[in-house]
């Protein structure tokens, strides 16, 4: 089993490399940082343009540039931005900002999504099921920026009615905030609520749909009936035998769910003015900056593939039929 998981991990590392290489190649081939530089007014002196070209290794073929960049990455050096600042300076902080948002969002999404799906399945064709179905479909078909904007408006409404700024939806903390660590925490929480909700709602809708159908499969199953025939109450049988089994197919979904989230997260970060990885990607692309683009891609790939690997582990842990071979 451990061998299997290890092999999968190796596969994933290779995949992450390939994804990053593709992003790097695409960015290098299409971006024209020198062109951007030349259009400045007044145009920079020819010497500094030449220097820039050398810095960016534009004289080398793209695969070689990738190798150069990658050998830096292995040593913890992600290169410099086009404005000549080391990427590593910003990387840690941005990752922290993004992960805080994503991890919280996905955890809430999974927990409540599974719960909602189960309730929906058990109460199939009843009012609560219809309601949950409607709720999910609306959410799933609403673009993130619309949802984010709506939530902002809602938060504004709440703030107005309370008469104080409880829910803050700009930035991830109040700039220049003074206070002890506890007050800092409070301030960050105030900033966190609305964006997290934006992410979590979509995730809840997504997971609840799948959980509902996987639970429905289990509801009609013979083993659930056996469990009740043994003397378990329906509720107990549903949770101990039904839900436990219905969770198995969900494991694989978690990986994809996370991928979706990271992509959608870009919008969320922009809407709420969080300077995370998603925001950075947009910045990188508009500045025609290959290194930023490749770094963010690498981060996304690692996240998705790590969650894929986690899904494998989870799957193996949940399903004894996998575990044996």
């Amino acid at each position: 089993m451990a061998g299997f998981l290890l092999r999968r991990l190796v596969n994933y590392v290779v995949l992450a490399l390939v994804a990053t290489f593709l992003a790097f190649t695409l960015a290098s081939a299409t971006f024209d940082p020198i062109g951007v530089l030349q259009q400045r007014n007044p145009p920079p002196p020819a010497a500094s343009i030449e220097a820039k070209k050398r810095d960016l290794h534009l004289d080398q073929p793209i695969p070689q540039r990738f190798v150069t960049w990658m050998s830096g990455v292995v040593q913890g050096d992600f290169g410099r931005t086009i404005t000549d600042r080391p990427i590593t300076d910003e990387l840690g902080r941005r990752i922290g900002v993004s992960l805080r948002l994503f991890l919280l969002g996905i955890t809430i999404g999974i927990l409540f999504g599974v719960l909602l799906g189960v309730v929906s399945a058990i109460r199939q064709y009843k009012f609560s099921d219809y309601f949950a179905t409607l709720f999910s479909f609306i959410l799933l078909s609403t673009p993130v920026f619309v949802l984010g904007t709506l939530l902002k408006m809602g938060a504004q409404g709440i703030n107005d009615s309370i008469g104080s700024n409880v829910l803050i939806f700009v930035g991830e903390e109040t700039p220049g905030f003074q206070g002890n660590w506890f007050e800092h925490l409070g301030d960050r929480l105030q900033h966190l609520i609305v964006p997290t909700l934006t992410i979590a709602l979509g995730q809840i809708a997504y997971y609840s749909r799948y959980q509902r159908s996987s639970m429905l499969d289990v509801l009609g199953s013979d083993f659930l009936r056996t469990a009740q025939a043994k003397g378990l109450t329906r509720r107990k049988a549903l949770f101990k035998h039904g839900l436990r089994t219905a969770l198995i197919p969900m494991a694989t979904l978690f990986a994809f769910g996370f991928g979706l989230l990271v992509v959608g997260g870009t919008f969320t970060e922009r809407i709420f003015g969080w300077f995370g990885m998603g925001d950075w990607l947009v910045t990188g692309i508009s500045a025609q900056d290959t290194n930023i683009t490749a770094t963010v891609t690498l981060f996304v790939a690692v996240c998705v593939l790590f969650s894929g690997w986690l899904a494998d582990v989870l799957y193996a842990a949940l399903d004894p039929r996998i575990r044996v071979n």
């Binding site: 013979d222 083993f223 659930l224 009936r225 056996t226 003397g231 378990l232 035998h241 089994t245 949940l318």
Partner: peptide, 20 residues
């Protein structure tokens, strides 16, 4: 009462037990 006083054996043994 179920499983204690009255118990039941079902038709399809392949799916009658919880797989996990």
């Amino acid at each position: 009462i179920r499983g204690r006083r009255i118990s039941m054996v079902f038709q399809d043994p392949l799916s009658a037990l919880t797989p996990v």
